[in-house]
């Protein structure tokens, strides 16, 4: 049972101590990781994925329930506490979808029956359906990404979930996030997207390889987040229209104007 993880700060790219000395993430919390490209967001996620023990270049240390994880906890996929969706958009493994998923299920000690469930779930997130006998390497970026999401959600069902830039793949990001961040999990989302960033409880701001500060999502931001979701739904709706080959005939943004006139 994991109640919290602790990230003890290390050093930034210049070897200076990180401004944030400690981050504690409790069970059920969603944390964002934001910052410019190259600021060390993926490295922070990488440290957590490996449950770093001052053995990576940042010299960060990750504790589970306040204690150091064992070597086996860190490396054995059957015991792995962390599921990670990386930024990769393509598979490189030269095998069929079905074979790949059964192999991964075996590694994680999951039942083979989940293979069909993974494909079914992936197909709710992407456009053209993925089939068991498809070669992994011919899947599109969106299909690959959807399959990775479903694989993380079902086969690598771990208490800690790390998600790196889910917005980049043209898949339904809200649905994907919902699928990944099950009840009572610790979730970290690396993102450049304000829609996702404002959905989190807190966000770690990265700069120059170090954790610069932690921002809690304010009540005002929560309010804005709802509006952003509506804009996002609108964009999604338009995207589907364009994808289906239809004409876009009007733009209904009244809900935004209504809000601003109420403020006056």
């Amino acid at each position: 049972m994991i109640d919290k993880i602790t990230v003890t700060g290390g050093y930034d790219k210049q070897g200076n101590k990180e401004p944030v000395e400690e981050v504690i993430i409790q069970k059920g919390e969603i944390f964002g990781v934001v910052g410019p490209t190259g600021s060390g967001k993926s490295s922070l996620i990488g440290d957590i994925e490996q449950l770093a023990q001052e053995d990576t270049f940042s010299k960060r240390k990750i504790l589970i329930n306040g204690e150091e994880p064992s070597y086996d906890d860190r490396t054995n996929p059957r015991k792995k506490m962390v599921a990670q969706l990386s930024q990769n958009m393509n598979f490189l493994a030269d095998m069929e979808v079905g074979e790949f998923l059964s192999l991964h299920a075996k590694c994680r000690g999951a039942k083979n029956a989940c293979v069909d469930k993974v494909i079914e779930l992936a197909n709710t997130l992407t456009g053209e359906p993925i089939k068991k006998e498809h070669e992994l390497t011919i899947l599109s970026g969106g299909q690959s990404r959807a399959l990775m999401v479903a694989d993380v959600a079902i086969i690598s069902d771990s208490p800690i979930v790390l998600i790196d830039e889910i917005e980049n793949a043209g898949i339904r990001k809200h649905d994907a996030l919902k699928v990944l961040s099950g009840h009572g999990k610790i979730v970290m989302v690396v993102t450049h997207d304000p829609v996702l960033a404002l959905m989190t409880d807190k966000r770690i701001v990265m700069k120059n390889g170090g954790m610069e500060k932690i921002v809690s999502t304010s009540p005002q931001e929560k309010f804005i987040s709802k509006k952003l979701n509506k804009i996002d739904e609108l964009m999604l709706h338009l995207r589907e229209k364009v994808r289906r080959g239809e004409l876009v005939e009007d733009l209904d943004i009244d809900f935004l104007e209504l809000e601003s006139s109420r403020k006056k």
């Binding site: 993926s42 990488g46 994925e49 490396t75 996929p77 792995k80 599921a83 990670q84 969706l85 990386s86 990769n88 598979f91 490189l92 493994a93 790949f100 192999l103 991964h104 075996k106 590694c107 994680r108 990775m148 694989d151 993380v152 086969i155 690598s156």
Partner: peptide, 24 residues
């Protein structure tokens, strides 16, 4: 870092198939 976590885990399993004693 260039492949998915799932592919990494499968790769690790295959190494252990060939060399169960290896430290990875």
């Amino acid at each position: 870092d260039m492949i998915s976590q799932a592919e990494r885990e499968i790769f690790r399993e295959k190494i252990l198939e060939v060399n169960p004693e290896a430290k990875i």
